[in-house]
Write a protein that binds this DNA or RNA. Sequence first.
DNA 1: GGGTATTTGTCCGTATGTATG
DNA 2: TCATACATACGGACAAATACC
Lengths: 486, 486
Amino acid sequence: MFTFTLTLDPALRIPMYEQLYTAIAGAIRGGALLHGEKLPSKRALCDQLGVSRATVETAYELLTAEGYVESRPRSGFYVSDYQLLPAWEGQPAEIAAGSSPVCSVTQNSPANAGLTDRGVPSPQQPAESPFSTSAVDVSAFPYTSWAKLYKEVVYNSPELLQRGEPRGEPALRQALSRLLSAYRGVRCTPEQIVVGAGIETLLEQLITLFGPDTVYGVEDPGYPAIRRSLESRGRSIRFVPLDGAGMDVEALAASGASVAYLTPSHQFPLGVTMPATRRSRLLRWAAEGERWIIEDDYDSEFRYGVRPIPSMQGMDRADRVIYVGTFSRSLAPAIRLAYMVLPPALLARWQRTFGRQQPTVSRYEQTVMARFLEEGYYGRYIRRVGNLYAHRRQTLLRELEKAPGLGVSGADGGIHFLLTCSKRTESELVSRAAAAGIGLRGLSEFCRDALPMPSTLVLGFGGLSTEQIPALIQALAQAWEIAPET
Amino acid sequence: MFTFTLTLDPALRIPMYEQLYTAIAGAIRGGALLHGEKLPSKRALCDQLGVSRATVETAYELLTAEGYVESRPRSGFYVSDYQLLPAWEGQPAEIAAGSSPVCSVTQNSPANAGLTDRGVPSPQQPAESPFSTSAVDVSAFPYTSWAKLYKEVVYNSPELLQRGEPRGEPALRQALSRLLSAYRGVRCTPEQIVVGAGIETLLEQLITLFGPDTVYGVEDPGYPAIRRSLESRGRSIRFVPLDGAGMDVEALAASGASVAYLTPSHQFPLGVTMPATRRSRLLRWAAEGERWIIEDDYDSEFRYGVRPIPSMQGMDRADRVIYVGTFSRSLAPAIRLAYMVLPPALLARWQRTFGRQQPTVSRYEQTVMARFLEEGYYGRYIRRVGNLYAHRRQTLLRELEKAPGLGVSGADGGIHFLLTCSKRTESELVSRAAAAGIGLRGLSEFCRDALPMPSTLVLGFGGLSTEQIPALIQALAQAWEIAPET
DNA sequence: GGGTATTTGTCCGTATGTATG
DNA sequence: TCATACATACGGACAAATACC
């Protein structure tokens, strides 16, 4: 493939074959085409340039005669070793001059040269913290099965290359509705399910559906990504405080918000599970008016020795809950596949607004995921990773118990929890850990107005390995000077 | 017994029988109701829903007419074999929205109420039109190579399961920048490229970046999907007329728009290629203020015997052009992979707003696409399909020449063109073709204020096979009564 | 790994415009 | 004015090489 632009202008006085010759010869001299590279075939190039084959042929003949390229019959033209060519410094000036406008090598235009990755603001998250809350263990990912399914799907489903259903593949939505009904008590038909490339994509759609004047109530502390999405769309946000049972309903009602974004099954970042009574009160709040609850069930797959509480969506009798879930945490962050369950009324709105757009997820990967679910791969994988996490979590908690003055909460499920150390302030905890080379995030980073618990950190264990845990915890204990004598 | 929830809301603007019809039809399509299952009896259902029997009867009649269910007299209504129904998925989105059962929910405005086909006794609407402008020939898709690459990528790149770069895989952006430079004269670094799941997704991001008060100028006639995206986001739209060279610059300037959405290389639907002079004037308009041009190059891969004009982005010296492209038309509609090239100033904004979100395209498929490009698969495939299209187009034009009074325009590139038949009005052309079983779309469907050419149709040939062309054209000529004596 | 359809360099006939005689 | 030659550009046909299944 050429990395430079070829433009022929028949209006010029220079014959086109000569323009072409000059451009390619210049590219070879300039190093844009290296020894051994294949030129486009005569037909490909004449099609691309919109000229006849003879034009290209004449140019290639010239190049061959000059020794720039070699013809390998019935195979193609290849750039010959320029080093062995006679020196070209003495080229006539007019040819060299003619070459520059025709063949512009556009590797790096000067205007853009200064704008690299470092020139723009990048996420401030510490590079690779072992306790990152977004890390996920993918070591057990069933590569073989996934690739095998993908291959089968590609081979056997040529129709998947054509346009798909906007909401997502019927087979996947069918599988999802079964999964959600069985494991999360979600009550829905496949019709109500919408698939999208990540929760952010789905949230974008919801924001559009709700219109510009909707006021959103979000958890404080809560998910920064949600706030960012709402802010970038210019929406009004109310930061609603939490208590030990989750979002404060009175505060929510007083806030004037009409859409509440919740993580009831394992609140992020506090980790509390919302009890049924609070859920009922929130549902009642929603049922009282044109109000909606977005239930983000981002990490319900992993529970440790506690009974799961069914989703709020399943308790809802007023059709005010939008259930949202994702495979990014249960399978792998790179799997951009999320889903939401829309109440009928919203579904109709969705159809009006997005019912003609193509889905944002590859039909191939949707179908692979459908089979991954239907054929039990997913269930087996979740159990396996769940055991990994359970073991890791147990090791972690046991090690943390050894150090005095540490408290753990929110560890009933998911892959993060809160760690409190009353002996130091939060910023001390963070900075001392950083000095020891361990990136940590304080709870206050997730708070807007409220700071419910002092000296608290948010620790993820999705990216840890069991072996490194004792050393890590000991390092932390030492950094915080709370280690027991060894 | 239904396994899904039926909720009728008399407060909605949609007639209750239609709500009922939509719910059941959707359930059948989605697979919640399977072949052979018995629907509740009319009496049972009307009692259960608290509606009159006439409501249920009308809904059941609709379902029967559409072929979803079959009435077995004195026994009940049974779900018919959905597999045997005409393929709904392949329908062009705009047609599907008007007539397909799922989307009829969305067509509930009084103005459109009469437009649904429930009054039509014919059991099914025309299958996908052979002349659909969104159809793409995927018969030559290299399944084996794609699957092989995917497998290799999955096996050899475990890191792809982790979070990726928000803009997209560096390898892909590198390959794209090379491709765009070589074939479209786009001047950019890989850093400026952003990858997303379809042009709509990228446009959504641009709409967010430009803020709520930006006024958009779109081509009239033009792309309905673009208007819909802008409308659903509540943006101000100005419909700017075209002349033979593309968008009217004076009208654009007078409209007060600050962002222009253009398809310069093969205007949709007119098919005209914007000449360099018009491009310069538009670029000057943009350079004069805080203005932007979105250059949608959806179609540029296929050209027939004409020299390509490099992209406007490549001519732009003021960094006001956002270049947008997609693989949905060149590879397959289901490949949800589009890209845009952001000018440095916009890139910084993009980073601030979206720089932390995960990309919307699977890292696996991104990497597969990168190798697909780098290793020459893409180039070979494009040439192959291009030859297919060229042959098909030639057959088509030759057949059309046989019939007197037909005029073709905009056929220099892409996979659609305009057909004019001065002997009849546009609606006559459409309705007579429909009566002959051939779905066609008139140019006026794409017009908002302007109707530049009378008696003109927009024909796509991506979904045709060469063999069927003569018969199809003959059928059209007969339907229009312009056939020469045989 | 083997079979087949496509691609590819090459050769060749043709058309058009221009210069020459 | 006409004939000839040449430069440039276009496209069909052939057999080997290659890509795809």
